[in-house]
Amino acid sequence: MTSIPDNAPHQCPGTQSEDAGKASACAGCPNQNICASGVPAGPDPAVELIKNRLANVKHKILVLSGKGGVGKSTVTSLLGHGLAKLNPDLNIGILDADICGPSQPRVLGVRGEQVHNSGSGWSPVYVTDNLSLMSIGFLLGSPDDAVIWRGPKKNGMIKQFLSEVDWGDLDYLLIDTPPGTSDEHLSLVQYLAGAGATGAVLVTTPQEVALLDVRKEIQFCRKVGLPVLGVVENMALFVCPNCKVGIYCTGRKRR
């Protein structure tokens, strides 16, 4: 009988298959090298490491959307600022998990800051006294540098963010994710399995093309057992100044 690791991606061929570690479904899987070598896969030691690192983080919330450009990063930053201002005694952290398109440093006004490394790990950048941020944007030589990485390297960076950042005591850790339901999302869910993710907030806009993708994100959450905390419909009140139609506008003035 074909054995399938507990943290395997959907459509995993199994460790006993000739395609183990080689099939398209294996790309980006944390177990890819182990399966390809024929060595039986065991529990990823990073899961326990991340569990211990995030032991003092009460709520871990992923901000998801299957569609790009719907305002996911904006919603994450506003949610972080809102929680931080709601109660000064709350400590909020934001993890920018969009490896190829890190935008939180610019959105939160801390672009150009540097991350310090100590014996306890990376120290996040503080936006306010009770709001901190970690992003790969702080590790790039220039804001214009492109991150051209394959799945396994992006997964390794996410693992490093979760296991090596010294967040301290947090009430909320908000994780801003890239669009889609692929490598980064699977890695986050798998690595947070031991630490316990609180749930996900989904972001969309009213257009049907965005709703089609967010429905896929809901299915992703159901398949990986991630509770959906709510859905934010961004730009719902936008009215085009030209055609007055709203978000479905053509941009042309009405005669």
Results as ranks from 00 to 15, higher is better:
234 N>M: 03
19 D>M: 14
41 A>P: 10
6 D>N: 13
146 A>Q: 08
197 A>G: 06
199 G>F: 12
39 V>N: 13
7 N>V: 03
251 G>S: 10
157 M>R: 02
13 P>E: 11
97 A>Q: 12
80 G>Y: 09
16 Q>C: 00
154 K>V: 15
230 G>E: 12
25 A>M: 08
212 L>Q: 07
138 F>D: 04
165 V>K: 09
160 Q>L: 11
62 L>F: 05
48 E>M: 10
222 R>P: 00
222 R>D: 15
198 T>M: 01
32 Q>H: 05
68 G>I: 01
184 E>Q: 03
179 P>L: 04
176 D>I: 08
210 A>G: 06
209 V>G: 11
222 R>V: 00
25 A>S: 15
198 T>L: 01
48 E>L: 14
165 V>I: 09
83 L>F: 13
173 L>E: 04
176 D>N: 09
76 T>S: 03
184 E>D: 07
227 P>E: 09
130 N>F: 13
113 E>I: 00
12 C>S: 06
19 D>H: 14
247 I>K: 08
93 G>R: 02
122 W>V: 08
250 T>P: 00
93 G>L: 01
192 L>P: 02
98 D>T: 06
50 I>H: 02
194 G>E: 05
142 S>W: 00
138 F>A: 07
219 Q>L: 11
110 V>A: 00
98 D>N: 06
29 C>M: 10
193 A>K: 09
202 L>K: 08
139 L>R: 08
111 R>N: 05
15 T>M: 14
22 K>V: 11
88 P>Q: 10
49 L>M: 11
82 G>Q: 10
66 G>R: 03
209 V>H: 14
78 L>Y: 07
21 G>T: 07
23 A>G: 06
160 Q>S: 08
168 G>F: 12
35 C>Q: 09
5 P>G: 06
4 I>W: 12
41 A>E: 06
52 N>S: 10
139 L>V: 06
115 V>K: 12
135 S>P: 02
235 M>V: 08
185 H>R: 06
29 C>P: 07
46 A>D: 03
134 M>G: 10
174 L>S: 01
124 P>L: 12
182 S>G: 15
70 V>G: 04
182 S>I: 04
6 D>T: 12
243 C>M: 14
178 P>K: 13
39 V>S: 12
234 N>Q: 04
93 G>Y: 02
96 D>C: 07
73 S>R: 09
181 T>V: 04
44 D>R: 12
6 D>R: 14
243 C>K: 14
56 N>P: 01
114 Q>R: 13
154 K>G: 05
102 P>A: 07
188 L>K: 07
157 M>K: 02
53 R>C: 00
110 V>I: 09
98 D>Y: 03
8 A>R: 01
84 A>P: 05
155 N>C: 03
218 I>P: 00
59 H>D: 06
150 R>S: 11
180 G>N: 10
